[in-house]
Structures are given as C-alpha cells and as structure tokens.
C-alpha cells in the first residue's frame, strides 16, 4: 500500500476550539443582488449583461421544454436538435458566401472526376490532388466566418442543454453532498451553517476541510420542489437552489462568483464578489438519456441529430454546406 503524506498545517494547533459548524432551521435571509463597489465597472457590466442573457435564455428554453415535461427527456432533446439543425443551416446560408462555396465545391468535384479519368497518369493525378487540397483549404476558409458566427449561439444553446440534460433532480429520499467553498482557506475560523431546510434534511454536521476552504454537508431530499438553502458564513448568507423531483428540468449544480462559471452554469445568479463564499455545489446524479435501451450522452445525440437535420434540410433552404 502506497501511503502519501500530507503536511500538517497550523490549524491543528487550535484543536477543540474551532467554532462549530451547525445546522439550523429558521428564516431565510436575502442574498445581496447588486455587485459591490469594489467590483471593476467592466466586469460589472459584463456580469449584468450575462445575467440578463442567462435569464432570457433559461426562460426561453424553459418555455420550449414546457410541453415535454411529462415525457422522456429524449423527446425534448430530439425536438431541440431539430430546431438547432434548421437554425444552423439557415444561419450558415445567411452569413456565408454561398456563391463562392458552390464554385469551390464544383471545382473539387471536377478535380475528383479528373483523378478518376487520369488515374493512369501519375503526374496529372498529383497535380489534381494538389488542386483538391488547395480548393479544400479555400472551402474551409469560406466556412470559417459562418462557423465563428455559429459558435456563439451554439455555445449558449449547449450551455442551456447542459443545464437541462446533464443532471437530474434529486429524488425524494435521495441524498447528496452540498459543498460550500470560501474565497480564502480558513473555514475553521468561520462560523458556517446550512439553513432554510424545508423539504430537505441535513444529515451530518459540516465536514470542514481547511486546506480546500470547503465545508460539505450530506443532505437528503424530502419533498419535491425547488428549495432555497442558505449557507451562512458569519453574518453573511448565500442561497443555493436545490431541485427535488422525479422528472427532469433545469438542474443547477453550481452557483459561483466566477464569470466563467456564470457562462457555463446559467441556472442561478452569480454570487456577489463581496461574499466570503466562492461557490456552492450540489452533487446531483447524471440524467440518463437512452435510445432503444442504449445510454447515450446528450451531447452526442444532439450533434448527430442536428447535423443530420441540417443536411436533410439544406436543399429546402437552398443552402450549400
């Protein structure tokens, strides 16, 4: 057995005198929603903008998926893949130089035919292959701009799909770990508790991991619904949504103060930078997506279906891909 050692830290000196990490019921306190004055202006603007975008897209996708709530999530995924396939082919047609693409593809086809016709003549074949390579690069060049244009909406769509299809809500009776990370290590010095526990039971005291700046609790879901749990650090409070239910929907695993996380985890508003809490995570389980008994990652299904739809409908839109 290989044993790896961890260096002792000075926190051990205070053995037995740490403030207790407790679990308390009681009233909810409001999370501050406005960024602090110390926040740089640019970052504040970006954060506000992203919050707006996230709010709009989350609402839009919520509306889009609303008719599918009682069904297997795969139907919603098929539906949105279909829409995205159409959207992609339409946007591609609008922002690309269709004439140039058509011309270069024709050239490639002609040269491919030439390769078959002159396969007895190595010199001609090599020359034609060179042209094919050149035209292929040209084709890729024409595709770059539409791809760049497409990447932005696609990223936002994928982030939304990830919110809906990567994780499932906790089932009533199921347990999970809820972790709060502080901006600075030193959780042992703080009085940290988990509050507002309607619909949820906290089964363990918080495990304080000073080296990680983390406190973690085991919670057990009791009643379906979207519950707001409050992590209290000293006098500050930060809320985290917990989704309990037996279906599927927007499951936000992470609430954090990072801009990148705000982009990737759009389900909840960011934590204000002035808070001592950096992030709160709930360990949800993956949402199983299966087709004819085969488990498939939602992203694979999404890309396969949307690309298929794009190719099927390119003629209808008069678009050359």
């Amino acid at each position: 057995m290989q044993i790896r050692r961890r260096k002792s830290k000075s926190g051990l000196k205070a053995w037995g005198t740490f403030p207790r990490v407790g679990v308390r019921g009681g009233g909810r306190s409001q999370t501050p929603t406005t960024p602090s004055d110390s926040h740089p202006t640019f970052e504040r603007v970006v954060t506000t903008l992203m919050k707006l975008v996230n709010w709009f897209l989350t609402s839009l996708f919520g509306l889009l998926f609303w008719p599918f709530q009682g069904l297997d999530p795969v139907w919603a995924l098929v539906f949105v893949s279909f829409l995205c396939g159409l959207l992609m082919v339409w946007v591609f047609g609008k922002v690309s130089n269709q004439e140039a693409i058509r011309r270069v593809k024709n050239k490639i086809r002609g040269n491919l035919l030439g390769v078959r016709l002159y396969q007895h003549d190595v010199r001609i074949v090599l020359r034609l292959q060179g042209r094919i390579l050149r035209d292929t690069l040209t084709y890729m060049n024409y595709s770059i701009i539409p791809m760049l244009v497409l990447i932005v909406p696609l990223l936002l769509i994928i982030v939304q799909l990830n919110l809906h299809f990567s994780l499932r809500p906790l089932e009533p009776g199921e347990s999970a770990v809820l972790k709060a990370r502080l901006i600075q290590t030193g959780v042992l010095q703080e009085n940290i508790s988990l509050e507002n526990l309607s619909g949820v039971k906290v089964e363990t005291p918080g495990v304080r991991i000073d080296s990680e700046g983390e406190v973690a609790w085991r919670i057990r879901a009791r009643q379906p619904g979207r519950h707001l749990l409050t992590v209290k650090v000293g006098e500050q409070t930060v809320e985290k949504e917990l989704y309990v239910g037996d279906g599927w929907g927007a499951v936000s695993a992470l609430r954090s103060n990072s801009l990148l996380d705000l982009l990737l985890y759009p389900g909840e508003a960011p934590i204000d930078a002035s808070e001592k809490v950096k992030s709160i995570t709930v360990q949800y389980r993956p949402l199983p997506i299966s087709i004819w008994g085969w488990n498939v990652h939602w992203m694979v299904l999404f890309f396969v279906l949307s690309i298929l739809v794009a190719f099927i409908f390119k003629g209808a839109f008069g678009v050359e891909l």
Partner: peptide, 27 residues
Amino acid sequence: FLDPEEPVAKFVVQDDEFILKEGEWSD
C-alpha cells in the same frame, strides 16, 4: 477528509463524493 472536531468525514472516490458519520455505511 476528516472534520477536525466532529466524527464525520467526506470521501472522494473517483467522481463520487459522499459523507459518512462515524458508524455509518455508504450506499
């Protein structure tokens, strides 16, 4: 990860994390 004071610990096993109190079994 053991809490410095309480008889409770967090386990990290591959992608899974769970918390046990002393005397408890995991799923």
